[in-house]
């Protein structure tokens, strides 16, 4: 008999509590992000239209790769780190300069520049090994994940434009000429020196 009334009591209590929980969640804003309408690439853009409780993409989200060529030293460490060889770098010499990377306080010395920096995003498996290997932090994962293309070929990202490439090659040949001239001058000087000694 006691169990009978306990059942009634439990039934009423649980329904009472359950109804209050479901009505409370009725008033909470839906957690769904209406994706194509809400821009989820950054926190600021998300806040404009979305009222729910989800945050934007996490900080360590591995989206499409991006390269900051101004701090890239063309050291090719990322090429070596890539397990599936989807990065290709061709480099030539350039004016010696110091670049401030994002990874360390010490500036890195840049002696070479890229004439080709291609990443095949169709092959990339987003393992982030290249970003770990990069000494300056030039290659990073962005939060962009919308990369559908109609052609497989369009998935190859080229970061060096034709103009920059030509400019770099031109500068490289100039540098070569300068270096050769310097070398020749040096050699001439040396020869003079040895002759004087004689």
């Amino acid at each position: 008999m006691n169990a009978y009334f306990n059942n009634i009591k439990n039934g009423i209590q649980t329904v009472f509590e359950g109804m209050s929980i479901s009505l409370a969640s009725f008033f909470v804003h839906p957690i769904t992000i209406q994706y194509p309408e809400d821009d989820i690439s950054s926190a600021e853009k998300l806040k404009e239209t979305y009222k729910g409780q989800l945050g934007p993409m996490p900080e360590n989200y591995r989206g499409i790769l991006d390269v900051d060529l101004s701090i890239c030293t063309a050291c090719q460490l990322c090429v070596k780190a890539c397990p599936i060889d989807c990065i290709v770098i061709d480099a030539v010499k350039c004016d010696k300069s110091k670049v401030q990377g994002t990874k360390s306080e010490k500036p890195a010395v840049k002696t070479r520049t890229c004439t080709r920096f291609d990443i095949h995003m169709g092959k990339c498996m987003f393992c982030a090994l290249c970003t770990l290997a990069c000494p300056t932090g030039a290659i990073v994962h962005t939060k962009v994940f919308e990369m559908n293309k109609y052609q497989l070929q369009d998935l190859v990202l080229s970061f060096v434009s034709e103009e920059e490439k030509e400019k770099a090659i031109k500068r490289d040949s100039e540098l070569k000429v300068e270096a050769a001239a310097e070398k020749a001058a040096k050699a001439a000087k040396e020869a003079e020196k040895t002759e004087e000694e004689k």
Partner: peptide
């Protein structure tokens, strides 16, 4: 009152980061 308590409990942000 119960609804208000539950509402407060449920509207805590559960962001990804």
């Amino acid at each position: 009152g119960r609804i208000r308590t539950n509402y407060k409990e449920q509207s805590i942000p559960v962001g990804l980061n």
